[in-house]
Simulated assay, not measured.
Amino acid sequence: MKVLIVDDEMLARKRIRKIFADNEGIELFEASSGSQAVSMIQAERPEIVFLDIKMTDFSGFEVLQRIEPSIIPLTIFVTAYDDYAIAAFENQAIDYVLKPYKEKRVLDALDRAIKKIETAQKSDSYDAIYTRFNQLFDQLQDLKKKAKPFLEKIVLKVGRKYVFAYTEDIKYITSSAYYAELFMADGKKYIYRTSMTALMERIDPDSFIRLNRSTIVQIKCIAEVISEGYGDYCVVMVDGQKFNVSKSYKTTFKKQLTLGK
């Protein structure tokens, strides 16, 4: 049986591969992006795919939309967040697994998919499965229309001018009294009158992570994470700036970055 693992995080793919290492009846393939996943599914025709929802190029849902319905594999969605997407496909997808993975949960999802394949082969009911995927896509599109969009840019008044600070160019944000200081990739710094909590609600949680009460960082600008013992962590940014992770944010921090113990 061919199983495709799709995730833009190498460690996440490695984790699933390790779980299946002793199963000689499974032939494993990997894809590190949505576009690569589409090519792999078309070329290898896997029966089952573990498909990450949020990737750098496009989502796992968009991967399936780009594939001819007749070759869509049974899909186990993978996500780090138990958010609105889960509610949309909880009763319609084959299964979903939350990060960080637990071995038993992954194996249970695989077993459920195998049983679906056996049932479909006996009853010739693949068309019903593909119809469920299409229903899922429609529901997600409706949810996206209703969802509050994340900020792509922040309009700031600097003297007599208005400046656009694009969120993708923010390295990190620190608090200063009732203001937030935005540190940009080009070295500039802007002051934005808002609270850290209010700002965190408006920016993409897949791109930013809060380390403590006074610090939010862009995940792609993290150079390394240092474990300092006793469960403490220090984050080093690409420009060398260091921030500590407070105890109240440590659990969310480890889950979002899929860090082990």
Rank of each mutant, 00 (worst) to 15 (best):
V3W: 01
V6P: 06
A12T: 07
A12K: 03
K14T: 09
I16T: 06
I16G: 06
I19Q: 06
A21L: 09
D22G: 14
N23S: 12
L28A: 00
F29C: 08
E30W: 06
E30T: 08
A31N: 04
S32W: 11
G34N: 08
Q36K: 15
I41E: 04
R45K: 11
P46A: 03
E47G: 10
I48G: 01
I48K: 00
V49Y: 05
F50V: 05
D52I: 00
D52T: 03
I53A: 03
M55K: 03
F61E: 01
V63H: 02
L64S: 06
R66S: 12
I67H: 02
P69N: 06
I71G: 04
I72N: 01
I72D: 00
P73R: 05
L74W: 09
L74D: 07
V78R: 08
V78P: 08
T79I: 01
T79F: 02
Y81K: 02
Y81T: 02
Y81E: 02
I86C: 15
F89S: 05
E90T: 15
I94E: 15
V97A: 03
K99I: 07
P100Q: 01
Y101N: 05
E103N: 11
E103V: 10
E103I: 09
R105M: 07
R105G: 04
V106T: 08
L110Y: 11
A113E: 02
K115H: 12
E118T: 12
E118W: 09
E118A: 13
T119E: 15
A120K: 08
A120Y: 13
Q121T: 10
S125Y: 08
S125C: 06
Y126L: 10
Y126W: 13
Y126M: 15
D127Y: 13
D127A: 15
D127K: 15
A128G: 12
R132V: 12
N134P: 11
F137W: 09
Q141G: 14
L143R: 12
K145R: 10
K146D: 14
A147V: 15
I154H: 03
V155Y: 11
V155A: 12
L156K: 08
K157I: 04
G159K: 05
F164P: 07
T167A: 03
T167F: 03
I170R: 02
Y172N: 01
I173H: 00
I173D: 00
A177E: 14
Y178P: 08
E181N: 11
L182M: 06
F183D: 08
M196F: 00
M196Y: 00
L199R: 03
M200T: 10
R202A: 12
I209Q: 02
I209D: 03
L211P: 00
N212Q: 10
I216N: 00
I219C: 05
I219W: 05
C221M: 15
A223N: 13
A223R: 09
E224T: 05
V225F: 02
V225Y: 01
I226D: 13
S227Q: 10
E228R: 11
G231P: 04
M237T: 00
V238M: 13
D239T: 01
G240H: 05
K242I: 00
F243D: 04
F243Q: 04
N244G: 13
K247M: 12
K247E: 08
S248E: 09
S248G: 10
S248F: 09
Y249M: 05
Y249W: 05
Y249L: 01
K250E: 13
K250I: 10
T251G: 09
T252C: 13
K254V: 04
K254C: 06
L259G: 06
G260E: 13
K261I: 13
